[in-house]
Structures are given as structure tokens and as C-alpha cells.
Nucleic acid binder design. Structure first.
Lengths: 153, 153
DNA sequence: AGTAATTGGGTTGTGCGCAATTGAATTGCG
DNA sequence: CGCAATTCAATTGCGCACAACCCAATTACT
């Protein structure tokens, strides 16, 4: 008799629940400054390095153009970013923070600190969770799209 | 100068990415038997205990009626479950597996084992990841909806 | 019994996520 | 140069998630 594992024992379900709990924890505070969670992580990526192309953002955030295109369009409509076709390559669109987009960083930093403090876990535990989740992500991605590189002959 | 944490250092972003990597890893195999990831976890819950109400499923899966109602309607349309209004309480709808819904368990068990084996992490690491993610989930939920119980006076 | 408050499920609207497709721009190759 | 293959972004369509709302059934209180 083949039987499935209990829901409680599933690492994937734990990640799925925890990720939604994380975005839910951010939701209210981000909504007050007009952001969704995905828009927030997009800003994190741009604060680290402005002027990225859509596909570079997609690689960093692991999101595709079907998600990013409308998202960036909404953010542009809200005055947080500008989209420019400027390079020698006429296909790429670079995303640039506006002043309003830059100005949110201080408020967001305070939201981050507040939530980090509110979670009832030790810093080392959160770091372990983060590292294991990153490794899981890399390993699962390897299953989904086997890296062509590194496998000669 | 208040500055935000790097994306790589964010536990929440790691969870957000890992959860999507997890559902992506399941996607192809589940699609072959006509399931989405959310439908799959709903079946896991029903295999553990059939005949639950919509709200009981919502508690277990941490999903609300706005997600579950249409989801269960699609699963009923696909012949996996039946929805019955049968209790003394005329508001509750109980969800019952059909034979087709039961029969998927064997195939799903094999998909679970296959993916578990394909992930390049040790069983203890996956268990640690699961436990930390569960604790994070509980702690974040506490922030979002502070439990009224346990705080007298 | 009668009214208020609560509960259970459903609907609507918005915003992701992602597969699949499209179309324009660029590169590769003879 | 000329044409095929590739790349980048956008679009379309579907299925979640969730807030906000609605309605009917039930419970609580008088």
C-alpha cells in the first residue's frame, strides 16, 4: 500500500506556508507606502544596482517577463521607476529608480527592522533557515532546468 | 544613512524563492496527472482525513474561502472530490474524495519519492529546513493575527 | 419568540506567477 | 550582403492568494 507523506512532514509544504506567512507579515506595512511584496523585492534589487534590464531583474528575482512586465508598468505608473530603451540594443529596457523610488528606502529599512525584531527566532536560526532555503532553491532549480554548463563529455 | 539589507541576506526572500522553486519542481509531474500544486496539497489533506469542511481545510492549508471555493469547484469538475451539504448545520460544505481522487494517491506517492531523492540535500538538512520553516510560519502568523488566547489581564 | 451578532461559504476585484506565443531587434554564418 | 537562429520584452490565458464584500444559517441574548 503506497501512501503519501503527511502534510506536516513535507518540507515543500512548510516552505509554501512560510513564504505566504512572510509576505503576509509584510503586507500591511508595505500597503501603507503603496507597495506589494513583489514590488518591494524589486526595489531591493534596484537599490543594490539601478538601471538593470528586465531580464537581469528576472534572473535576480527568479521571475519571468510575464510577471515583471506588468509589475514594472504599475510601478512606473506609481512614479517609482522609469523604463528606458536606451542601449545600443533596441530590445532591452532598463529600469531606473525615480527620486520617489529612492526615497522609499529609509521607510522600507525601518519596516525590515521592525519585522525582523518581531519574529520570535534567534538571528542564527534565521540565518540557518535562509541558507538552507537558498540551497533548497538552487537544488530544486537544478531539477527543473538542469544546468547545461559544467557537464562536458 | 538608513539602508536596506541586501536581497541575498533576506530570510523572507529566500523563503519566497524556495517556495516557488518547490512548486516548480512539482509542476511538470503533477500536470501529467492533471493537478496543480495547491490541488495536490488539498488532496494530501483529504487523504489524511476525508470529509472535512471547507473551513477545516482552510485551517490546515492556511488558505481562505476565496482561494478554496473556486479551487474545490475545479477539483469537483475534474471528478476528484464531491461537495455535500449534509450536516445538521446547513452552512457547512463537506468535501469527500471520489474513487478517482483516492486512486491518485499511489501516483502522487511515487512523485514525492522521486523529487525527494532528486534534491541534493541530506534528509537531516531537509528536516531542519522544514522545522525552521514551520516555526517561522507560526511566528509570522503570530505577528499578522496576534492570538487573542493566552494573554489574560 | 424575536432581534442582534456570529459563522460558513461564496463572489468580486487586484496582483502575482508562469507557460505559451508574438514581434521586433540582433547575431551568426555562409 | 542575405537569411536563419537567437534574444529580449510584451502579451495572453489560467490558476492561485487574499482583501473586501455578500448572503444565508445558526447562535446568543433578552
Amino acid at each position: 500500500m503506497q501512501t503519501t507523506q503527511q502534510l506536516d512532514h513535507q518540507t515543500c509544504f512548510a516552505l509554501y506556508s512560510a513564504a505566504r506567512a512572510a509576505t503576509a507579515a509584510y503586507r500591511e506595512a508595505l500597503a501603507e507606502i503603496g507597495l506589494t511584496y513583489t514590488q518591494y523585492v524589486t526595489l531591493l534589487a534596484l537599490w543594490e544596482q539601478d538601471g538593470r534590464t528586465v531580464s537581469e531583474l528576472g534572473t535576480t528575482l527568479r521571475l519571468d517577463s510575464g510577471t515583471l512586465s506588468p509589475l514594472l508598468k504599475r510601478m512606473a505608473a506609481n512614479g517609482l521607476v522609469e523604463r528606458r530603451r536606451e542601449g545600443k540594443d533596441g530590445r532591452t529596457v532598463t529600469i531606473h529608480l525615480t527620486d520617489a523610488g529612492h526615497d522609499l528606502e529609509t521607510q522600507v529599512a525601518s519596516i525590515q527592522r521592525r519585522l525582523y525584531d518581531a519574529v520570535d527566532m534567534e538571528p542564527e536560526e534565521l540565518a540557518t533557515l535562509r541558507d538552507l532555503a537558498q540551497r533548497f532553491c538552487a537544488s530544486a532549480a537544478e531539477i527543473t532546468h538542469p544546468d547545461t554548463q559544467g557537464a562536458p563529455r
